[in-house]
Simulated assay, not measured.
Amino acid sequence: MRSAIGPPSPRRSPSPSSASSRPSYADAGGRHPDVLAAAVVAVDSPIRGERPYAYVRTVDGSALTAEALRDWASGSMASDKLPLVESVEAFPMTATGKIRKTEPAARASRMPPAP
Rank of each mutant, 00 (worst) to 15 (best):
G6F: 02
A68H: 00
V40K: 09
R107Y: 06
P7Y: 01
A78R: 13
T94F: 12
D60K: 15
L69I: 13
P23T: 07
K98Y: 02
V59K: 05
F91K: 13
E67Y: 00
A73T: 07
K98W: 01
A90M: 08
S109H: 13
I5R: 15
Y25S: 14
P7A: 00
E89T: 13
A54F: 01
D27H: 06
D34T: 02
R107Q: 10
T94C: 11
S79F: 01
P16V: 12
P52M: 05
H32F: 03
P52R: 13
A39P: 08
R57C: 11
S74E: 05
G75D: 01
T96E: 12
Y25L: 03
P8K: 06
R11E: 06
S76D: 14
V43H: 06
V88F: 04
A108G: 13
S79D: 00
V35D: 06
R51F: 04
V35R: 00
V43Y: 04
E86T: 15
A73M: 04
L82W: 09
D27V: 06
L82E: 07
G29F: 07
P7M: 07
A37P: 01
Y55K: 01
E103M: 06
R31A: 14
T65G: 00
G6V: 10
P46T: 08
A78M: 00
G30P: 05
R11P: 04
A28P: 04
R70E: 00
A54C: 11
S79C: 03
R31N: 12
D27S: 06
E86A: 14
P16I: 12
S21W: 07
T58Y: 08
S20I: 09
S24Y: 10
R31I: 11
R51C: 04
S18G: 01
P46D: 00
L69E: 04
P52W: 08
V35G: 00
F91V: 03
S74D: 02
D27M: 05
A4D: 12
T102F: 03
R31P: 12
A38T: 08
E89G: 04
D34W: 10
T94E: 13
M93I: 06
A39T: 03
E67F: 13
G61M: 07
S76V: 08
V40F: 14
A106I: 02
L36Y: 02
M111R: 15
P104N: 01
L84A: 05
G29Q: 09
Y25H: 06
R31M: 11
L36D: 08
L64W: 12
V88A: 02
G61F: 04
P115N: 07
D34A: 10
D34P: 13
R12H: 08
F91E: 08
A37L: 00
S17I: 07
A68Y: 05
D71P: 01
A73R: 02
Y55F: 15
Y25V: 07
S15L: 04
G97R: 09
K81H: 08
P52K: 14
P23S: 14
A37Y: 11
P7N: 12
